[in-house]
Amino acid sequence: MNYRTFTINGQGHDRPGPVTYGPERVLIIAELGTSHGGSAAKARELVDAAAEAGADCVKFQIVYADEILHPNTGEVDLPGGRVGLYHVFKKLEVPLGFYGDLKEYVESRGLLFLASPFGIRSARELRSLKPRLLKIASPELNYTGLLEELASYGLPALLSTGVSRLADIEAALEIFPPERACLLHCVTAYPAPERDYGLRVLGNLGGIFGVPVGVSDHSLDPELVPSLAVTMGAAVIEKHFCLSRMDPGLDDPIALPPVDFARMVRGVRRVSALGAEAALEALRRERGPDTVEAVLGDGVKRLAPSERANYERTNRSIHAIRDIQAGDTLAPGDFAVLRTEKILRPGLHPCWETKLAGRKTARFIPAGEGIVFEDLIR
């Protein structure tokens, strides 16, 4: 298998030069997300614990609720129960200085700082922090305007490919240069069944698009998916991290606490040391050939059963910000590219965002609903 590597210009204060990752040296990311709950002390505690557990990189999310959801989205089912996600995100908004201080602290620990933006404002704020690497989350893979903005920064990026089809990935890589991209195979379910991963897809994604690959893993097993992913050529492994699964963070119920994250790191490093073939044989003996074969799958990129219902709902589309009356002329502030979730109607693909201003509406569009072609006078 022709494995491709992924290079980042520096990592932490003690490693300023380029660092190249591949199956023999995997970049391991602890996804801290918003588990800090807005507390700088909790964020530092998470960083310290991730460093001790063996992470190379810690990742955060720069959240502004209005960039992600409409207030009328309603409640969303998450691992910790049903929540009004828009209002939770509002409570997680923090000043940019919060992340500036965190980046300095992360790098003082010799780790790489990484964050996901969710819209143009958070992207530009992230750029002001001078990151070495970007992350585009799965729901934003089809967000044309955000991809164009991030592509203009000239930085390498990890692009998660959960709840997407091959055509979605191809369209994203027509905007974000493939030579600066690494695709992270992902299943957008919380938790995701290990057997939904079909990890042979990694070699096919790398071959089709000519890019390095990795996995953003939402399964509960600390080792199975990450270790097998490295045998299939993964250069990057990302896994949610928490201090305890009893903590109140949005993703804490499916995240790995420090002991389990350290176990994952050891498993990944063992595969790198053994090499793909020897490691695969060892995993077949330890986990059973049927389990290993089920997780490896047939290599076809398809929507996994556990995420199929999320397609066109977790992804972005164009939604009305306000009640729009029949006969109104649309202005830029009347609509936004948002996640739909379960209650609202999905709208037009984000590529239409720049083409709607000046169009007249044919019928009433309630605030929050997706804008579709039938809403417009042609």
Rank of each mutant, 00 (worst) to 15 (best):
L338I: 02
E75H: 08
L184T: 07
V83Q: 13
E369L: 01
I169F: 04
E286R: 14
V63F: 11
L228R: 02
D14E: 14
L133E: 04
G80N: 13
D101W: 00
L85C: 08
Y21K: 07
L338P: 00
A357R: 05
A192R: 03
A278H: 12
P366S: 03
D251K: 06
E238Y: 09
S138D: 03
L205M: 03
D217G: 09
R109G: 10
I365G: 08
G297Q: 06
E93G: 06
R82A: 13
V230Q: 04
L69Y: 10
F118D: 07
F335P: 04
S116W: 00
K301I: 03
D334W: 01
S244I: 07
F98T: 06
A262C: 05
H87M: 12
G207V: 00
R322C: 09
R44D: 10
G100F: 03
S122R: 11
S219M: 10
D328L: 11
V201W: 06
A151T: 05
Y143H: 15
K239E: 06
H13S: 14
R266Y: 09
T144A: 11
P193Y: 00
G210I: 00
E125H: 11
S306W: 01
L32W: 02
T361M: 09
G38V: 06
S122I: 05
W352R: 15
T73H: 12
G368F: 01
V163L: 07
R127Q: 14
A51G: 15
F98G: 11
C186G: 01
A276T: 01
G100M: 01
L126M: 11
G214V: 14
L220S: 12
L184D: 03
G17M: 10
I324G: 02
D168Y: 09
F60W: 14
D56V: 10
A357H: 04
A320M: 09
L283R: 00
P16K: 11
V300Q: 11
I343N: 15
T329A: 12
L330R: 01
A234F: 01
R269C: 09
R165S: 10
G17F: 09
S128F: 03
G81F: 06
A55I: 03
G198I: 06
G368V: 02
K301G: 03
S306C: 04
H36E: 05
I120V: 13
M232Y: 01
D217S: 13
E140Q: 13
I62S: 13
G54P: 12
I318C: 04
F89Y: 15
G207A: 14
P79K: 04
L85V: 07
V211L: 04
A49Q: 08
E140N: 13
